[in-house]
């Protein structure tokens, strides 16, 4: 039994086809990233997984049941979008509230410790920073010790350092008995966290494979140097090999730079130029 299964899911809003028949599954123990630009259909797909919306056609299953069924959602943990908390409440209050919905929730103090919230648990959420609020959101997703965790843009709006810290915490919560599906528009995030990446573009699934396969397909390196013919820019799948050859060839060069394509570039490549 898959943790999450989509079969030919279609969803239309008026004249807009948000999902044009997408199929994928997420197995227990996997961390899967759903990657795509804004408007690609990520939110719609997630809303269907969470039981907030129903598919027009095809089916979406959560551990063999319909996510519209509250009992099935006992196996699901999710985050609120961005910083959508009631400001006046405390992390302890909202997590205790979420915990009340699950048969076997994690002890709160243990949960707070693993998300570095111990000292923040009794402060009003409105006084916490964006990064701290994101940690509260993650704690909500895991408090029920659910078999399936769905995170909608868990690190959007955070600085690089907070984002990395959050990745570490997320990784420590993933395990063999749990499936994690998260959306992101950071290629780097998918790369760092996911076992598998799904790329959604204009309502269609255009890639389903490992981050490595994604890199190989799209993640070329840009090598730049000033050589005999002036400034030279080369895009290559294997920068190491290219530089090795360049050095061995004895060609005079200076000002060598190797760079990953920007997220923008990678995105454009992945999504066939739409943005």
């Amino acid at each position: 039994m898959s943790s999450i299964e989509f079969f030919d899911v279609r969803k239309r809003f008026g004249s807009v086809e948000a999902l044009r028949g997408i199929s994928f599954s997420v197995d227990t123990g996997e961390i899967v990233a759903l990657l795509g630009p804004n408007g690609a259909g990520k939110t719609t797909a997630i809303e269907i997984v969470l039981g907030l919306r129903r598919a027009d056609d095809g089916y979406a299953m959560l551990r063999g049941g319909s996510p519209r069924d509250a009992r099935v959602r006992m196996q699901l943990g999710a985050t609120p979008q961005e910083t959508g908390f009631p400001d006046a409440l405390t992390p302890r209050e909202v997590t205790a509230f979420a915990a009340a919905h699950y048969p076997d929730p994690l002890p709160l103090d243990e949960l707070f410790a693993s998300f570095d919230l111990t000292n923040l648990a009794d402060r009003r959420i409105g006084t916490l920073s964006g990064g701290q609020q994101r940690r509260v959101a993650l704690a909500l997703a895991f408090v029920g010790d659910p078999a399936v965790v769905v995170l909608d843009e868990p690190t959007t709006g955070l600085d690089v350092e907070s984002r990395r810290a959050l990745w570490t915490q997320l990784r420590s919560q993933a395990n063999r008995h749990r499936a994690v599906l998260f959306t992101t528009h950071y290629l780097e995030e998918a790369n760092a966290l996911a076992d598998r990446v799904l790329v959604l573009d204009r309502g269609e699934l255009t890639f389903d494979g490992t981050p490595r396969a994604l890199r190989e397909r799209f993640g070329a390196r840009r090598v730049e140097y000033v050589g005999p013919n002036g400034r030279t820019i080369v895009t290559t799948p294997d920068a190491d090999e290219y530089v090795r050859e360049l050095v061995n060839s004895g060609v005079q060069f200076k000002d060598l730079q190797v760079a990953a394509p920007s997220f923008e570039d990678a995105f454009l490549a992945v999504t066939g130029g739409s943005k």
Partner: peptide, 14 residues
Amino acid sequence: GRPWDRYVRTLPAP
């Protein structure tokens, strides 16, 4: 319309 309301709907409660 609050994001929090949307979150609460994802919890297993009728």
